[in-house]
Design a binder for these strands. Structure first.
Length: 450
RNA sequence: GUGCCUAUAGCUUAAUGGUAGAGCCUCGGAUUGUGGCUCCGAUGAUACGGGUUCGAUUCCCGUUAGGCACCCCA
């Protein structure tokens, strides 16, 4: 082989290597700069879950692919086009979860949770995978905060409670005046009747429909109401509305949901054309959007009732309602609306930096003793920053400054012999010598005062 | 999955058919017992592959990634 060829081959290898070492398309790193947002959102969700009485459940990321085929619907886009599936060495067909609900329903059944007090209120937070074309607010791996209320009776109160949770979540994140769209898509009794009427209506206008809709007429007629083609848009106006066709039970159920929402003053818009992409929904469906141009990011929380799902996976009839919110979308909305993720409104985390103390050594000889004192302080619960690896005291204090820390401790050779340490207020520049014995108490006093 | 647009240092960007200049950041020094200001210095880029050309970062094609619209969805 000529050296020329070798070089070429080498180059190709490098190229392939370089490619494989970038993040997979649509999969994003959560970086330290995002951390305040995650902290804020997860904290809010956890706090609300505690107050509402939802307990954490965390099913595995992988489930049998069949679980989603059966529940979410074989004909749905989520399952048909967007699911990551894999075959194991043992020959099992698995899927990275494209949503939480079926896995949680499976866990509910598998662990006999119907024998626990009903309903079970469950919350989960974790990664979800959908093989889609990435856009703003849409990645192939993203994170959902998922809420499920399983068991008991199909009581409208639970629908309202779920909606209320997400309403509160958005409020805690200072996402003001979100838009809540609501609909009921009926039950086994009334939906098929409605579907027939819808098909009849559209059949009479078949020629005017777009290609997609013509095939949807067979596969998933409800989705016709979702189409944004101008032609189809026109037809929607005169299409029969599901809300007029609900059976008396569903109609009462929906009415009560609205009454509960009125009672807690959560505003909503009825949207008889709101249908959802998953098969298992019945009765209430809802979507929250951020108001303003941020609406573009898509629904920030959505869900619905799924009273029949458990049966489709071989369980008893188990009424259930759930919803999910996309964490990355919440972050996108917060950024777009310039909502600072931390409580005090400052964006650089100064709130935390003011509770930190910086430890610096002054000269090589005091370095190891400094290391020990830093460890001691951390064991006592203090947040201690340092840059002991740097040689000059000046450079160390520069780091303290960059981190926005207000208080520094300095240990030099002289202090070592005297068993003291210098405590310097970095804002005022005033410093004093302090005996090591008094250090912990003095720090407690100073840091809690801030 | 379809269509359109984009790609220069970690970030924001300048320029050119003759291989690139800055600001911010990072690191070091002035200042190895005292930070912020200042000054000096250093590191660092034309996404990748191919074509046209004497010569490509610039023009063309492909790939990859990102953005936007659709599809769909959190």
């Amino acid at each position: 082989m000529s050296p020329n060829n070798d070089a070429k081959k080498e180059k190709e290898k490098d190229q392939a290597a370089a490619r494989s070492f970038q993040a997979v398309k649509g999969m994003h790193d959560v970086l330290p700069v995002d951390e305040p947002y995650w902290e804020k959102i997860e904290g809010a969700a956890r706090g609300l879950a505690r107050r509402y009485g939802f307990s954490r459940i965390e099913p595995p990321v992988l489930e049998f692919a069949e679980l989603y085929n059966k529940t979410s619907g074989e004909a749905t886009d989520v399952v048909q086009k967007e699911m990551y599936t894999l075959k194991t060495k043992g020959g099992d067909f698995l899927a990275l979860r494209p949503e939480y609900t079926p896995g949680i329903a499976r866990a509910y059944m598998e662990h006999g949770m119907s024998r626990l007090p009903q309903p079970q209120r469950l919350i989960a937070m974790g990664p979800i995978f959908r093989h889609e074309r990435p856009q703003l607010g849409r990645a192939r791996q993203f994170t959902q905060i998922d809420l499920e209320t399983l068991g008991g009776v199909s009581d409208p109160m639970y629908d309202a409670e779920t909606i209320s949770f997400f309403s509160d979540l958005l409020a805690e994140l200072k996402i003001k005046a979100p838009i809540l769209r609501l609909n009921s898509i009926g039950c086994r009794v009334c939906r098929p009747i409605y579907k027939k009427q819808l098909i009849t209506y559209y059949k009479s206008h078949e020629a005017e429909l777009c290609d997609d809709c013509r095939s949807r007429l067979e596969s998933n007629p409800l989705r016709l109401l979702d189409c944004k083609e101008p032609e189809c848009e026109k037809l929607k106006a005169d299409a029969p509305s599901i809300l007029d066709k609900l059976c008396i039970t569903c109609s009462n159920h929906f009415k009560e949901v609205l009454e509960y929402l009125d009672e807690v003053k959560i505003p909503y818009e009825l949207d008889p054309r709101l249908v959802r992409g998953l098969d298992y929904y019945s009765r209430t469906v809802f979507e929250f959007y951020a108001s303003g141009p941020e609406e573009e990011i898509g629904a920030v929380a959505a869900g619905g009732r799924y009273d029949y799902l458990m049966e489709t996976i071989g369980g008893h009839i188990t009424p259930a309602i759930g919803g999910a919110s996309g964490v990355e979308r919440l972050i996108a909305v917060m950024r777009a609306k310039e909502i600072a993720p931390n409580g005090n409104g400052s964006s650089n985390g100064a709130g935390i930096a003011s509770k930190r103390v910086f430890f610096a050594h002054a000269g090589d000889l005091s370095r190891k003793r400094s290391f020990a004192l830093v460890k001691m302080l951390r064991e006592k619960g203090f947040m201690v920053s340092e840059s002991l690896a740097k040689d000059s005291l000046g450079n160390q204090l520069k780091v303290a400054d960059k981190e926005g820390i207000g208080l520094a401790l300095i240990l030099g050779q002289k202090e070592m012999y005297e068993n003291t340490v210098i405590l310097r207020d970095l804002t005022s520049g005033i410093q004093e010598e302090l005996s090591v014995d008094r250090l912990v108490d003095e720090l407690k006093r100073r840091l809690s005062m801030k």
